[in-house]
């Protein structure tokens, strides 16, 4: 419900007071993602490796009976240090009908950003490609990079979502 409400307000261009973002850090940069896309936050443990995958795919975990892939954004974007200990945090994201865990350096806070305070993203030297950035916010004089997590998860770069070659096959056999 909440999400629908937000989407529709976007469409109508109504200046809603604020949207909430979960902020996290990757290296020295602060990022924010739409809180509505976040399912939960958990620790990093019991990851089963999957062979022949890029290094940033750490493997899969059992999240209450569902098998969830874990992506280490630190490795993917080459920031911070990819170490795993009891304080390593995994943000469980739910987008595009997929549940995916992302490993970040640390989760900071949930903040509300007034819509008008969000600026478009310039071409800048952030570790994250501009394609996945929806805008820049300011928080306590610090820049917050707002990530389009849906686009990122769905991107070919992360190779999480199959390019769905299987459909064509079943169509053929129907002949």
């Amino acid at each position: 419900m909440q999400q629908t409400a937000q989407n529709s307000s976007e469409q109508q261009g109504v200046a809603q007071a604020a949207s909430e973002y979960l902020t996290f850090t990757l290296g020295s940069e602060s990022y924010g993602i739409d809180i509505l896309k976040v399912q939960e936050i958990r620790g990093y443990d019991c990851v089963t490796r999957i062979a022949n995958t890029p290094p940033f795919i750490k493997g899969v975990i059992n999240l209450r009976g569902v098998i969830v892939p874990i992506v280490d954004l630190r490795i993917k974007f080459n920031v911070g240090e990819a170490t795993y200990h009891e304080f390593t945090v995994v943000i469980i994201i739910n987008v595009l009908g997929k549940v995916v865990g992302i490993v970040v350096d640390g989760v900071s806070d949930v903040v509300a950003l007034p819509r008008e305070s969000i600026k478009p993203a310039p071409e800048l030297g952030a570790s994250l490609d501009t394609r996945y950035i929806t805008g820049l916010g300011t928080l306590n004089d610090q820049m917050l990079i707002l990530v389009d997590i849906e686009k990122l998860i769905g991107s070919d770069e992360l190779q999480i979502v199959d390019s769905a070659a299987d459909n064509s096959q079943s169509e053929v056999v129907n002949q």
């Binding site: 019991c46 089963t48 999957i50 062979a51 022949n52 995958t53 493997g59 899969v60 975990i61 059992n62 009976g65 569902v66 098998i67 969830v68 892939p69 997929k98 549940v99 995916v100 190779q159 999480i160 979502v161 199959d162």
Partner: peptide, 22 residues
Amino acid sequence: IETNYRRVEGSAGATILGDGRV
């Protein structure tokens, strides 16, 4: 595995073991 991830070559799915691992 494909519910949330792509197909994994060499595997016909996954299971959860008694210790909770995949």
